[in-house]
Nucleic acid binder design. Structure first.
Length: 873
DNA sequence: CGGATCGAC
DNA sequence: CTATGTCGATCCG
């Protein structure tokens, strides 16, 4: 209670100041003390829009904390004990899997950008400098840090702190070059080392050390380089002089640590020739050697950490910064000692917010994190508390992960206020262009486009839309982004949208497999078995068919399918048929058309399609072409198979996966290069319209066939949600095509014409919407309201479905008070489960609050990134 | 899935 | 004189 109050009332400046990273001012002669720094920053920042927003965010965090504390209050001793037992059981397992056999090194260049600039501008050497701009600094040198000048601080504030500060503009090209030089050295110790941005890298030197033991001295001898031989020097003729004066002799690389210089070769160093040095064979020596060589080559210093896993190595490299190194020897006790008093904030993955939340629980150090493990398991998501547990036990990845596939790509830009829609659209287009370029470099195509906006009050909003066929070109991305932007503009109309940042992101990339086979939406359909087609119910304009592809994300998540199905009805309508259908979120003069008029979708001929309905449940062809009658039939069938359905889910999912491998490759990928916007969404349909002959296809997955010919084999409904959807889309038709069961068909199926034939159901003006869940007729003819209704129904259904599942892990975790656990377990479906994989020796299984460790970023992209040097110490 | 949030640099 | 970034991943509902 006491705590709660404190949190709630905590001084509003708390979080903000925290963020500014005001900390150890090394009691140095020059510089400012902490208080002075605080007040200057405050003065400069107070009242600004930025500050106001910071306060707001801070309040939100406080509210979160308050909620957490309330939850905590309700926890009973018994629950806690139970949790303790369970967590400790896990601890035992984790402890058994501890792997100390690897030697991981984290290398971190000191004040990298600033150091490079100082090297290249000797006149700046003894001055406080920062790299960046008046708006934002990327890093500062140590001299400037004494004034409180930090990375991620706007330059104009830094100037107030330190009027003498020299701000040097960023020069990524240069940093990239230096970085490359460093990497060349690193590669010698671990060819598979993992760069993290320009100034950091992880190495696994386990193998190197094994070999190194047997190396002759000569292989470990390095000469002092007093010549300037680096390329940089060409830029700077003073290099030699500078190097001599501030260079190696005064550099502490070899002599700074108090640790004995030698291990296995006690007096080597002394024996070494005058201008050379020999390094020992231990891990420490090897890393000293690396740092020595880096400094010789670049005249820049690096810090390093050596430990049995990446997390520890990283925290280690921070310890003796700058220009120092630290090792945690591979013993359990050494690891625990290191962690004992380590503030959790030092742990990679624990940021400002998590720190504050944990602090509210009285947790500041890693050992406290361990002590509270039971409580944490009740208050945080599984992914989070498991991560906490790993941290407090000192577990982490013991090998460097391969660069995993990237999951998204984005670009964003900050600018001074833009409020004219016209400018906003062209900016948007520009961003799409940039992004498209980057996507193409990596050959990626994604299905989800996200627009990010930050208004002049620093409030950030994102709006996303997932489309069926993946996008990658400027035009394709813009077509979607434009729509999102238009909606936002309209939403504040008649006021202008006043923004200071815009960003575009593409995610939902196709997997390799998908790339290969994904072609027509039909193919995706075969794969996922969860296609949704939808009949537009505004027949006044046109009848179109929309496919929604289901992603892999939730292999068995029927709930999401439902949600998505319902939601996508909205979105598809919105984005794809702006002109042809009502625009629920736009007024008539939608600004989306401001820059580029949306092209009219090609109306598809469907008038002469003779329709046959096949019930998606019983697979009987229905004689009647009366929709209502058909609906009734399906409803009956559905009711009859409800129970059976849930049991069959997994089985069907498996069979679906198996068949996937044999999907034919379709060739019409670029057929519609010219077709943009919604037209391309309809490519599959378009094609089928012109291709009536699909006799070569064996339609095994047809659910509703409305095509004239073709008998088809039956496919079991995959699960309840599938059925629900198909019913929901009563008047829709599913693309078919097929050859799931016909491998012979493969390979030879290169002709686009063979791919599919799909038909359209005639839209009847008097269509009645019947909710597939509750079976009630809906009065409305508005799709949006109908969707809303279905959504609600589906949610109800979810609860039912939940209670029916016997294997739902209700007993596993504290359920009495925290339905959050229920929800998260359910919602995350497979993903949560995946994360539970717990073999620390198997490397990163992190998620939740740890991020960067589990994700291997592409070096390439981080290179071009505007990086900000870490700012705590 | 979409939106917000977190963390790294 | 003004003026506070960019990116990717994860979590929650």
């Amino acid at each position: 209670m006491d705590n709660m109050k404190k949190v709630g009332n905590s001084s509003c400046s708390d979080g903000f100041l925290l963020r500014m990273g005001l900390n150890d001012n090394k009691a140095g002669m020059q510089g400012l003390d902490k208080e002075k720094i605080n007040s200057i920053i405050m003065k400069a920042t107070k009242g600004s829009r930025f500050y106001e927003n910071e306060l707001k965010k801070d309040q939100q965090v406080n509210q979160r904390i308050e909620k957490m504390m309330q939850l905590k209050e309700k926890i009973t001793t018994q629950q806690l004990l139970k949790a303790q037992l369970q967590v400790d059981k896990l601890v035992t397992e984790l402890e058994q899997s501890r792997n100390l056999s690897n030697t991981i090194v984290h290398i971190d260049m000191d004040a990298f950008y600033a150091a490079v600039e100082m090297r290249d501008h000797p006149e700046l050497k003894d001055k406080p400098i920062a790299v960046g701009s008046m708006s934002m600094l990327s890093t500062s040198n140590y001299h400037a840090r004494r004034y409180g000048v930090r990375a991620a601080m706007p330059g104009f504030i830094a100037k107030k702190l330190c009027p003498h500060l020299t701000i040097v503009p960023l020069n990524f090209e240069k940093y990239g070059k230096v970085s490359k030089e460093v990497r060349e050295i690193l590669a010698e110790y671990d060819p598979n080392f993992m760069p993290m941005g320009l100034d950091e890298a992880y190495l696994n030197i386990t193998e190197h050390l094994e070999e190194r033991v047997n190396w002759p001295e000569d292989k470990r001898r390095f000469v002092f380089n007093t010549e300037s031989t680096t390329e940089k020097d060409k830029d700077d003729t003073n290099m030699s002089a500078k190097f001599n004066e501030g260079g190696y002799s005064s550099s502490p690389v070899l002599f700074e640590d108090n640790t004995p210089l030698m291990d296995d070769h006690p007096d080597q160093r002394g024996q070494s020739a005058e201008n050379s040095v020999v390094f020992g064979t231990s891990a420490e020596e090897a890393v000293k050697e690396i740092r020595f060589r880096i400094e010789q080559k670049t005249q820049l210093t690096a810090s390093a950490g050596i430990a049995p896993n990446t997390t520890l190595a990283k925290m280690c490299s921070d310890r003796n910064k700058p220009n120092g190194q630290c090792r945690i020897v591979p013993e359990r006790q050494a690891v625990l000692d290191f962690l004992k008093d380590l503030p959790i904030r030092k742990v990679p993955g624990i940021g400002k917010v998590t720190e504050k939340m944990l602090k509210a629980l009285g947790i500041v150090t890693c050992s406290e994190l361990y002590q509270q493990r039971a409580l944490l398991s009740l208050l945080f998501s599984e992914a989070s508390w498991r991560n906490f547990l790993d941290i407090s036990l000192g577990l982490g990845s013991t090998h460097l992960e391969k660069d995993g596939e990237r999951k998204s790509m984005s670009t964003e830009r900050t600018f001074s206020e833009i409020n004219r829609a016209e400018d906003q659209y062209s900016l948007c287009r520009e961003l799409c262009r940039d992004l498209a370029q980057e996507l193409q470099k990596e050959g990626l195509k994604g299905k989800t486009v996200t627009l990010k906006l930050k208004n002049v009050n620093f409030e950030v909003k994102t709006r996303a839309l997932t489309v069926l066929s993946s996008v990658s070109t400027e035009e394709e991305i813009f077509a979607v982004a434009k729509e999102l932007l238009g909606t936002e503009i309209d939403s504040v109309a008649p006021h202008p949208l006043r923004i200071r940042l815009m960003g575009v992101r593409v995610s939902g990339f196709l997997s390799e497999e998908e790339k290969k086979y994904q072609q027509k939406s039909i193919t995706s359909f075969l794969k996922s078995g969860k296609e949704i087609s939808f009949l537009r119910l505004q027949p006044a304009k046109s009848n179109q068919e929309y496919f929604t592809e289901n992603s892999e994300a939730s292999p068995r998540g029927s709930f999401f399918d439902k949600k998505r199905a319902a939601r996508q009805l909205n979105h598809e309508n919105l984005s794809l048929n702006e002109t042809a259908c009502q625009q629920p979120f736009h007024d008539g003069k939608s600004s989306a058309n401001f820059v580029e008029e949306t092209k009219k979708a090609t109306d598809l001929e469907n008038s002469n399609v003779c329709t046959i309905f096949t019930c998606p449940v019983c697979f009987e062809e229905q004689s009647s072409d009366n929709l209502e009658e058909f609906n009734r039939h399906i409803d009956e069938c559905l009711n009859g198979t409800l129970v059976k359905d849930t049991v069959e889910i997994s089985k069907n999912d498996i069979s679906r996966e198996n068949t996937l491998k044999f999907l034919p490759q379709f060739q019409n990928e670029n057929v519609d290069e010219r077709q943009k916007n919604r037209t391309d969404q309809l490519a599959g349909a378009d094609q089928s319209a012109s291709t009536s002959d699909n006799s070569s296809s064996k339609s095994t997955k047809k659910i509703i066939q409305i095509v004239p010919d073709k008998p088809h084999s039956k496919r079991q409904p995959s699960n309840l949600s599938d059925i629900a959807r198909s019913v929901c889309m009563k008047q829709c038709l599913f693309p078919q095509k097929a050859s799931l069961d016909n491998k012979d068909h493969f390979g030879e199926t290169e002709r686009a014409e063979e791919t599919s034939s799909s038909c359209f159901l005639e839209a009847k003006e008097d269509s009645v919407l019947v909710c597939p869940v509750c079976n009630s007729e809906q009065k409305t003819t508005s799709l949006v309201s109908f969707n809303r209704h279905v959504d609600v129904c589906l949610n109800k259904g979810l609860i039912q479905e939940l209670t029916e599942k016997k294997d739902f892990p209700t007993e596993t975790y504290n359920m009495e008070n925290s339905n959050r656990v229920v929800v998260s377990n359910f919602f995350s479906g497979g993903s949560n489960r995946r994360q539970q994989c717990t073999n620390p020796s198997q490397g990163t299984k992190r998620s939740g609050l740890t991020t960067s460790q589990s994700v291997s970023k592409k070096a390439k992209s981080s290179d071009s990134k505007h990086t900000i040097e870490k700012f705590f110490k």
